[in-house]
Design a protein around this nucleic acid. Structure first.
Lengths: 329, 329
DNA sequence: CTTGGGACTGCAAAGGGTTGCAGCGACACT
DNA sequence: AGTGTCGCTGCAACCCTTTGCAGTCCCAAG
């Protein structure tokens, strides 16, 4: 009512107890007499008192905040992950800082540093920085990495290797023998996994695979790579993500190349967009919401446990839609 | 190096000055002798010292944090806004809490309350709560409202009224006389603006306008409303947002109704998706990134200024693409 | 009646900074 | 020499809460 927020002292005075009793009413209710407790609670209520988290953080060392760092909030891959992480965090009474690095590795480091003192841990999504740097940063703040496997660090990854293999096998099964891989950004663990797995799968199936890239993981980059893709002579292409695949689709459409009649296209991620465009995109779905939840859970479990299950791998699934078809040749 | 983070006291001891001098080195550099300053800075550097923001917040009362509350992070309308706000905030050395209400008005209130003590202000995006409640909450924490005009409260709105009018005039200009409005969620100021303006514009042009709704602002709701839209007999539809328009487009496609030959569809927002689908969506573009930046700016300017320019209105623009065409009758 | 223990509660230090105030030396001016 | 000012630095209180420790009261057991 007064405009200035009530502190624990106001409540103590108003209810005739010591501040420590008020404190305990909130943080260890079982230690205070039920009568006292309800009295304190009701005066706190009437004063509009809320514990000051900064002060609490100062003494307990726990902020009840989590940092979430992503490469690009506007990349449709991330919002479902952010949403799930935020929801999971809040359910456990944590708040979420969200920060955007603009795909810039040095920004990643700065952000972790800046957030370090203010959070109980940081979720690093699809980091582009080096493993060495991650090793260094983990000493400043608990880290959970998403979309990257780092030795000894808790991590949540998608089984994109399996997904890429399934995609290649799908294409080979449709008679394609000349394949292209539209590579993603430098520094991306996922990109390396996809390349490794796709290359192996193509080799095992006796097909050729031309690797293009690195590229930014954007629709524009996908469109820009259109001519390079066609120059490879491939009849089917696997893209690093749906966004690039969709950009490629647009560019192909502009050039009058029909999909999948002349060229088959597969994406990865299954962002919501992918089933809205024409042709509907064949893609490898990755459980992004589950990844967000899992990452929060890993961060919030106690350190000893955290070490034991240091790597969570989430399954992916090939979703065949309309952008893939038989080899025209 | 030690694992435990260095405090201001460590730096003071190591550089042979008092803590207050170290404090000033960081928060009021001009007050300390350049020699002293550089000495402090270098020992701070070598100790890996970073000011503890919680401690600072405790004494200064300013957290250097901002809360951003949106209805649905995964709704493509919001990510560009979030991204812009985050970037603008960080540029001014603020961090951003992001929270998601799931379109739930009571969650909105809880979130503002929970964040209140932890931030210097809250950006309330597209709030669904009542004006009374907003009035109440503004007494607990500085508020800036986006996509809603509230008396005396700093707000950033898009001129959707003008956009809706332009859309209706565009449709009338194409010969349509029987129009429908696919309404958005209850409690949305934007929805009321659109309805008001569209109704007035239709009336002025001598066209009929059937208003449908309220609906959730989702693709699914847009699709679900397909039959209701057709039942109105309208030859052109304006949707509350692109997501609903796109859902409608999908449903129309499934039913074999061709757009724009049989029915014209207009969206609002111009999310990135809208130019990727077929037919490309005619829509009213809203400057979401600019809104995010403006909201942060408003929050961060001093109170006296904040009062003077309490309402920022951002212009919208009709973007004619492929989903609108002449009246078939 | 003593002793022990349990249930509460109060005391005071601690956490890491900021900031008003005062002290101090150097210098300029009268 | 005395006075005033300026630039810099130290002192110590303060921000709000948590928590180890100790004290009080009461009751049950011996």
């Amino acid at each position: 009512m007064t405009g200035v927020p009530a502190t624990i002292r106001d409540v103590a005075r108003a209810s005739g107890v010591h501040v420590s009793t008020v404190s305990r009413t909130f943080s260890a209710p079982h230690l205070v007499n039920p009568d006292t407790r309800s009295r304190v609670l009701s005066t706190a209520e009437s004063l509009g008192y809320r514990p000051n988290r900064a002060a609490r953080a100062l003494i307990t060392g726990r902020t009840h905040n989590i940092g979430l760092i992503v490469a690009d909030i506007a990349n449709p891959f991330f919002p479902p992950l952010i949403k799930a992480a935020e929801s999971q965090a809040r359910q456990r009474d944590y708040h979420l800082f969200v920060a955007d690095t603009n795909e810039d590795p040095v920004m990643e480091e700065q952000l972790v540093q800046a957030l370090a003192k203010q959070v109980d841990g940081v979720l690093l999504c699809s980091p582009r920085m080096s493993n060495d740097l991650i090793e260094k940063l983990r000493r400043e703040v608990p880290l959970v990495v998403v979309n990257r496997a780092v030795d000894g660090l808790p991590a949540v990854v998608m089984d994109v290797a399996n997904g890429a293999r399934a995609a290649i096998e799908h294409l080979v099964g449709l008679g394609h023998r000349d394949l292209a891989l539209l590579g993603g950004p430098r520094g991306s663990w996922t990109n390396r996994e996809i390349r490794r797995s796709a290359t192996a799968a193509a080799k095992a199936a006796g097909a050729s695979l031309t690797v293009l890239g690195p590229h930014q993981p954007t629709e524009a980059a996908g469109a820009a790579a259109c001519d390079a893709v066609r120059a490879t002579g491939a009849t089917a292409v696997l893209a690093y993500n749906d966004l690039m695949a969709i950009g490629l689709l647009q560019a192909l459409h502009d050039r009058g190349v029909s999909v999948p009649a002349e060229l088959s296209v597969v994406g990865i991620d299954d962002i919501s967009l992918s089933r809205l465009i024409r042709p509907k995109l064949t893609t490898v779905s990755t459980p992004t919401a589950a990844a967000g939840r899992a990452a929060v859970d890993m961060l919030l479990q106690h350190d000893d446990e955290r070490r034991t299950n240091a790597l969570v791998t989430l399954q992916t699934e090939l979703i065949v839609r309309e952008s893939t078809g038989p080899n025209p040749h």
